[in-house]
């Protein structure tokens, strides 16, 4: 007869757990973690082929199509002497590129990370929350600089579009680009809470971006849009970003094609700053590390 063995298998809690090694180290600085995040974000981004191709190629392809279709037989936009179509569309594509690499990029990628549990995992580590956002800022900076560089290189190299030489215009470019990227990024963070799942994120975000492009004068001469559409577009930042970029890449006399008859730099700065601040407040208040259905 086999009786069960009576070996006591109950494990008492280790009486003296081997002490964890002396914790001498200091917490890594927020800056160091932010840089590590930027690096990891950038590596991850460039490995995700679909997103890379879409974000980088889309403005370039659109520029090529519109410049080719509308620019046949040397057609020009506006009153004499007019602007070549390729040059006219370039600022809109630069603005679109900024919107894609900041707003669309973050709105979709953060929604996906939230859905996949990546954000919740990060929240369980000593990573400073600020480092997460600074890492995203770093990513957006890298992506948008590469993208605008690519677009300008194609514009100048393949389409023979003259780029400005006046430093004042590049200064305008710099602040519109920086403010637009920052506003797009914070709005992307805020918008990322809207899609119900990671899978639906593209489906929710992409139409917003496409509609904005049509009404904001990216694909058409803004001055030729119906005035109600211009008014709708004025509520959103893409119109202002595109207008700012037109003031950089179009000749000075093209200002007569603007409905207001001016580049409205002050208005551009005001609207983009407002989006930056509102996006920041909304983003901070609505940001979640967990999925919506996760309590």
């Amino acid at each position: 007869m086999s009786t069960p063995t009576t070996t006591p298998v109950t494990r008492e809690p280790a009486a003296a757990p081997r002490g964890t090694p002396a914790r001498s180290g200091r917490l890594p600085s927020t800056l160091a973690v932010s840089l590590a995040r930027t690096r990891t974000e950038t590596v991850g981004f460039f490995r995700e082929r679909d997103a890379v191709i879409f974000i980088f190629a889309y403005p370039v392809i659109m520029l090529a199509i519109f410049a080719t279709v509308f620019g046949q037989d040397g057609a020009r936009v506006g009153p004499e002497p007019g602007v070549p179509f390729g040059q006219y569309f370039l600022p809109g594509m630069v603005a679109t590129g900024v919107l894609l690499s900041s707003f669309q990029n973050l709105a979709i990628s953060i929604a996906v990370e939230r859905d996949e549990g990546g954000l919740k995992r990060l929240r369980g580590t000593p990573m400073p929350p600020l480092a997460y956002f600074l890492g995203k800022v770093g990513l957006v900076l890298v992506v948008s600089l590469v993208q605008v560089g690519l677009l300008l290189a194609v514009a100048a190299g393949l389409f023979g579009i003259d780029l400005p030489t006046d430093p004042g215009r590049w200064w305008t470019f710099a602040w519109v680009f920086a403010l637009g990227t920052a506003a797009g990024a914070v709005c992307g963070v805020a918008f990322s809470s809207l899609p119900r799942s990671g899978r639906s994120a593209s489906a929710v975000v992409t139409p917003v971006v496409i509609v904005l492009q049509f009404v904001s004068g990216v694909f058409f001469a803004y001055g030729e849009l119906p005035s109600w559409m211009q008014q709708v577009a004025s509520i959103f930042p893409l119109k202002w970003m595109a207008q700012g970029m037109r003031s950089v890449f179009l000749p000075e006399q093209a200002v007569v094609m603007e409905p207001s008859g001016s580049w409205e730099h002050l208005g551009i700065a005001a609207v983009l700053t407002a989006y930056l601040l509102v996006g920041l407040v909304v983003g901070i208040r609505t940001f979640r590390w967990r999925r919506r259905d996760d309590g």
């Binding site: 914790r23 917490l27 990891t40 590596v43 991850g44 490995r47 995700e48 990370e113 996949e116 549990g117 990546g118 954000l119 919740k120 995992r121 369980g124 580590t125 000593p126």
Partner: peptide
């Protein structure tokens, strides 16, 4: 947080690293 470790239920983040 640096003294705890958390292994959550299913996650599939950071897929490309």
């Amino acid at each position: 947080r640096s003294r705890i470790g958390v292994v959550l239920q299913s996650t599939d983040d950071h897929a490309e690293l």
